[in-house]
Nucleic acid binder design. Structure first.
Length: 211
DNA sequence: AACAACCTCAACCGCATCAGA
DNA sequence: GTCTGATGCGGTTGAGGTTGT
């Protein structure tokens, strides 16, 4: 994977404002290696929370939000960078079908991947792939296939799942009682435990059977 | 070689939610 | 119960790289 963060020019707020007299000079734009190091050091001491304090302690003129994002998407240990495998791609597709654009939840199922990375991957690769597939299957529909209906069914599943979430997590109206947040609560789970995958695939298969 | 068009991805922005006072 | 600041999330932007002409 390319790392632009070092090559990119840092544009402090001052420069962005054309030298106008802003009280706060907040550093924006790409992070330098030096900033990364400072941030990592401060997080090692104070932990990865209270981002405003972390930002202040690091003395980087960065807002807490920016520090958090940098840590989560880049500096955090065990970050997997580079190509997304076919297996991971398949998983993303299935999870997206199930959850929609809930990138953080999807990322939670892919150890070492960040929500931002998955979101980017989806927008640049998978959404196009799907459009392409739809185009192909759309042609097939005209020849007698029922892909349009299939899409509607998928949409329906998503809607019903959202309703499940919004109501008492197990609404009566839906065909399957499925607690998304419960199911995707990973707090007590090892990231390498993939038992849930088969569980998920079972459910996925269940829907296929229903529709 | 030069330029334009397209692609990728790090980072920002705005909003929603949460937690503490 | 309300207010306020912190945090988290998804959408969007834009710099820089790549590819095509």
């Amino acid at each position: 994977m390319r790392d632009r963060s070092i090559k990119r020019e840092v544009k402090p707020m001052e420069a962005m404002n054309n030298g106008s007299t802003k009280k706060e000079l907040v550093n924006k734009g790409a992070w330098t290696a030096e900033e990364d190091q400072k941030l990592a050091e401060v997080i090692a001491i104070h932990g990865a929370k209270r981002w405003k304090i972390v930002a202040a302690k690091a003395g980087l003129n960065r807002c807490g939000k920016s520090c958090r994002l940098r840590w989560l998407n880049y500096l955090r240990p065990n970050i997997k960078r580079g190509n997304i495998s076919d297996q991971e791609e398949d998983l993303i597709l299935r999870l997206h079908k199930l959850l929609g654009n809930r990138w953080s939840l999807i990322a939670g199922r892919l150890p070492g991947r960040t929500d931002n990375e998955i979101k980017n991957y989806w927008n640049s690769h998978l959404s196009k792939k799907i459009k392409h597939k739809e185009k192909q299957s759309g042609a097939a529909t005209r020849e007698g296939c029922c892909n349009g209906q299939q899409n509607r069914v998928e949409e329906k599943v998503n809607v019903e799942m959202r309703e499940d979430e919004n109501t008492s997590k197990g609404a009566e109206g839906s065909k399957i009682n499925f607690d998304v947040d419960g199911f995707f609560d990973f707090s007590n789970e090892s990231p390498l435990n993939f038992e849930w995958v088969s569980k998920f695939l079972e459910i996925d298969q269940g829907w296929s059977d229903i529709f």
